[in-house]
Design a protein around this nucleic acid. Structure first.
Lengths: 241, 241
DNA sequence: TCGAACCTTGACCTAGGGGCAAGGTCAAGC
DNA sequence: GCTTGACCTTGCCCCTAGGTCAAGGTTCGA
């Protein structure tokens, strides 16, 4: 006959857990000795090892209770199912490990692989961290609003980036962020930008949502995402177009 | 700007989880719109994907909170540690799977491998299920009371079982359970048993605890573990020895 | 304009215990 | 006989990481 502590040690379970199983009706209360201590038999030990095994497998105690006095076929079926469940949890943990590795890496975790590649290209081009941040956040918002459109837009944007003139314009806009709003280079930049859009084939017919500048607009809905120079640039471009 | 539902969908998290993160101080409460709805930015989306990734890895939210604004080196170290932790949990799940498989099989889960092998041998010998049950429970109690002694005793018991005469005695004792207490075969069986113990070398000097009959005695402390014939047998053996 | 889908807060629930209080019991050693 | 430490008892509230339900306000698309 075992005390609760001996039983708990045998099954490698805490005393508290044993009492919890009594409370949940998984384990019948054993007889008490003259001093009121619970006295367990080997039957209890067997049952509690069963309970522990199922509970460790993540089976809710309510289900463990049913399983304990189910017929062997039902139990076997349940075990098969639980086994599959564990396999799946292992696979999930592996996926989590991969994501954890990406968390070290940078932004790939937060955006689609295409956008992540795009951001990498921008970084190589020498785009400022501020601008990268703006781009990333813009794509996040777009992906959230419309994942299908976002995947079209990113393909278009990346194709655009193969044009050296567009790349130059992009870098100039990036640099212009810090300029004074009175900077004489701003009107010229606005002109070059408008000219490029006018020359670029098919830009206008795809509708306003297909304009890659919407990335910047979306990002600008965040606080601190614009500057006096950019505001001036926006006015220069809309006024004369 | 995202609603709570859009944010939750983006990060593949439930709305309730998002609010829970606010409650725990992991995620700053965003501004509300005119109707009191929370309105999120891409910054929130980034943060919540981080939180989700760490939380899915089993990191307690309190620690996630610290990690969110830790310096990169601290974060990297923590991620390495968390990664090891996941590996360990995968290993544990594999062990649980093995145990689950044993749960289908039978008794191996509840006793040491040596005892399990012993029980298998007894089963092959044609021992009754009742007796097997008694043996198993006896070994459980012994293992609980004194694991080291139990491992010595099981080795001794298995060596004993290699003796054909002991095996015959064991099977006869098993069969005798159901006999009438007046059965004429009982005194003869008691004699044969006493003779065997007397002949068997070193049986008496190892002390009473090394007598394998203690298995039966231990098992008999359970209700319904004896019979009139066994009681008579016990009296016959002690009276005349 | 209406219904569906969304949002709000609040209250209560879960599993598997942990920790503490306020004791009772038991075995060993002096 | 007395103390000490380890063990046991019940009962209570606490935790995590949310889930669920209720009762209501809001927004959006047909």
């Amino acid at each position: 006959m075992l005390t609760i502590g001996q039983l708990a040690d045998y099954a490698r379970v805490t005393i508290k857990a044993v009492r919890h199983y009594h409370l949940r009706g998984l384990l019948p209360e054993p007889d008490r000795d003259s001093s009121g201590y619970r006295r367990y038999t080997a039957e209890h030990a067997v049952k509690i090892v069963k309970i522990r095994t199922l509970a460790q497998a993540g089976v809710p105690l309510a289900r463990v209770k049913d399983l304990l006095d189910a017929d062997p076929d039902t139990l076997a079926a349940a075990i098969t199912e639980i086994d599959h469940d564990i396999e799946e949890r292992i696979a999930q943990l592996r996926r989590t490990r991969d994501q954890l590795a990406q968390l070290r890496g940078g932004d790939r975790l937060f955006v689609s692989p295409e956008v992540a590649d795009h951001l990498d290209e921008l970084r190589e081009l020498g785009v400022s961290e501020r601008q990268l941040h703006l781009e990333r956040d813009g794509w996040i918002l777009m992906q959230t609003a419309s994942p299908e459109d976002a995947s079209l837009w990113i393909a278009e944007k990346r194709e655009l980036m193969t044009d050296p003139e567009f790349r130059a314009l992009y870098l100039d806009h990036d640099a212009a962020y810090d300029w004074s709003p009175d900077d004489p280079r701003l009107p010229a930049l606005a002109d070059r930008t408008r000219n490029w859009f006018a020359r670029s084939p098919g830009r206008s017919e795809t509708g306003p949502v297909h304009n890659p500048a919407i990335a910047r607009l979306a990002a600008q809905s965040q606080p601190g995402a614009s500057s006096p120079a950019w505001d001036r640039l926006a006015r220069l471009m809309t006024d004369r177009s």
